[in-house]
Simulated assay, not measured.
Amino acid sequence: MTAGIAVDLRSAVPPYEQIRLQITSLIAVRSLAPGTRLPTVRSLAADLGIAAGTVARAYKELEQAGLLATRRRNGTIVLGMPDDGLPAGGAVPADLIAAVDRYIAEGRGAGLDDGTLLGILRVRLGLSRLGQ
């Protein structure tokens, strides 16, 4: 599992957020299919060389977003992406998802909140003129 996840401790983006973004991307491009069991918090933390609380926070936020579920005997499993209007069947290229993740990470690293990031996207897409 850690082959798809790396943490850059020099980044302005907190490690838990890096993990959250990377797991979200892996789920979005269907590299992590629904039902896939993730490593335990302690196992992933040890593999990445970070504190278990950091991984636990990422998992908790992914659970709150409806992407993961933690069950005592089954561990943490992938639920998949909610139906958010994205094309089915993995039609969104992985490099595009990665670019969006970089945009989010850079914006948060610059201290921008989600509303500001969405506002920038709306302006760039021309949606602000349409009142959307």
Rank of each mutant, 00 (worst) to 15 (best):
P34T: 07
L21H: 08
L79P: 00
A98Q: 10
L32C: 01
P14F: 09
Q22L: 09
I50D: 00
P82N: 13
S128L: 13
D83N: 11
D47M: 12
R108I: 10
L26W: 06
L44N: 12
I27T: 07
L9W: 02
A105D: 02
T116K: 11
L127T: 08
R122T: 12
E63N: 09
G75M: 02
I23G: 04
R10Y: 03
A58T: 04
R73M: 06
A88S: 12
A94Q: 08
R37I: 13
L44R: 01
A69S: 10
A88C: 04
L112S: 01
R129Y: 13
A99V: 10
R10C: 00
A6S: 11
D113P: 05
N74Q: 14
A105Q: 06
S43D: 11
R129M: 14
I27W: 02
R108A: 07
R72C: 01
L112V: 01
L86M: 08
R30P: 00
V29E: 09
D101F: 00
L112A: 03
L62N: 07
G35S: 07
L96C: 04
R37A: 06
Q64A: 15
D95N: 13
R72Y: 06
G75V: 04
R71Y: 00
L21C: 04
R37E: 07
A91W: 06
V78G: 01
